[in-house]
Amino acid sequence: MTAATNVLEQSIVVFSQNYLPISRVNIKRAIVLLLTGKAEPLRMMDVRVWQVRSPSRVIEVPEHIRLTIKGKERPWRVPPVTRREVLRRDHYTCQYCGSTHNLTLDHVIPLSRGGSHTWDNVVTACERCNQRKGDRTPEEAGMVLRSKPRAPLHPTVAFAEQFWRQQQTRQEQISGYSPS
């Protein structure tokens, strides 16, 4: 693989005008945003910068860019509680045993006990765990949830959380520090 091909496979983190990480784009899209003035380079410590050359120009593309234009924010609503969305949220994994086979939906507090069909009461469960739990709460069945069910996050917020976690891990690796 050539160095040029290697550079073209890089991805760049895009920040909003108020420095919120909002997405990741390929380097070609980042170059277009920089050349059209819709974005500016963000220079932070320990950030890689790639030089992209054309016959008439050399452009430096940093690992992070910031939009200079204000885009229209598309409205986002929490999706309805459906089998597809619950499976996606739970990463297609039983929330009791971790299995990825024969998945069903389970109401943490059963509907017959006053539970509701809401994001914080529905989880993915394999058939075996769902039958074992039956019409009981997880505590009554002696079962523990792997994660607390909650509604999906706005995609931008989810991206920002992931970005800052990665940055923290990166800084810990650089400094050799681990908070334990």
Rank of each mutant, 00 (worst) to 15 (best):
M1R: 04
T2L: 09
A4D: 09
T5D: 14
V7N: 02
V7E: 02
E9F: 04
E9V: 00
Q10K: 15
Q10L: 08
S11W: 06
S11T: 14
V14T: 05
V14K: 04
S16V: 01
P21N: 03
I22G: 07
S23N: 09
R24H: 03
R24S: 14
N26L: 01
N26E: 10
K28M: 09
K28L: 13
R29P: 01
A30M: 08
I31F: 02
V32K: 14
L33R: 11
L33P: 03
L34V: 06
L35G: 03
T36I: 09
T36W: 07
G37H: 07
K38G: 13
K38N: 15
A39P: 04
A39Y: 07
P41L: 06
P41E: 09
L42K: 10
R43S: 13
R43V: 14
M45F: 08
D46I: 05
R48D: 15
V49W: 07
V49C: 12
Q51D: 10
Q51P: 08
E60R: 11
E60L: 12
E63P: 02
H64R: 08
I65A: 05
T68G: 01
I69T: 09
K70T: 10
K70A: 12
K70V: 08
K72S: 03
P75H: 06
W76A: 01
R77G: 05
V78Y: 00
P79R: 03
P80K: 05
V81P: 03
T82Y: 00
T82P: 00
R84K: 13
L87S: 00
R89T: 00
T93L: 01
C94R: 05
C94F: 03
Q95K: 02
Q95S: 00
S99I: 04
T100I: 04
H101G: 00
N102S: 10
N102W: 06
L103P: 01
H107N: 04
H107L: 03
H107A: 02
I109Y: 01
I109D: 00
S112W: 03
R113C: 02
G114S: 04
G115V: 00
S116G: 11
H117N: 14
W119S: 05
N121Q: 07
V123S: 05
V123I: 15
C126G: 07
E127K: 13
E127L: 13
E127D: 14
R128Y: 11
C129A: 09
C129K: 08
K133T: 11
G134V: 08
D135W: 08
D135E: 15
D135K: 12
R136I: 04
P138L: 09
E140P: 12
A141D: 10
A141I: 14
A141R: 11
G142W: 09
V144W: 07
L145F: 09
L145M: 11
S147I: 11
K148T: 15
K148Q: 14
P149M: 11
R150L: 06
R150E: 15
L153R: 11
L153V: 06
T156E: 15
V157G: 02
A160K: 10
E161Q: 14
R165T: 12
Q166G: 10
Q166D: 15
Q166L: 10
Q167W: 04
Q167D: 05
T169P: 02
T169E: 15
R170Y: 13
R170L: 11
E172R: 10
Q173P: 00
Q173R: 15
I174K: 13
I174C: 00
I174D: 01
S175T: 15
G176A: 07
S180Q: 12
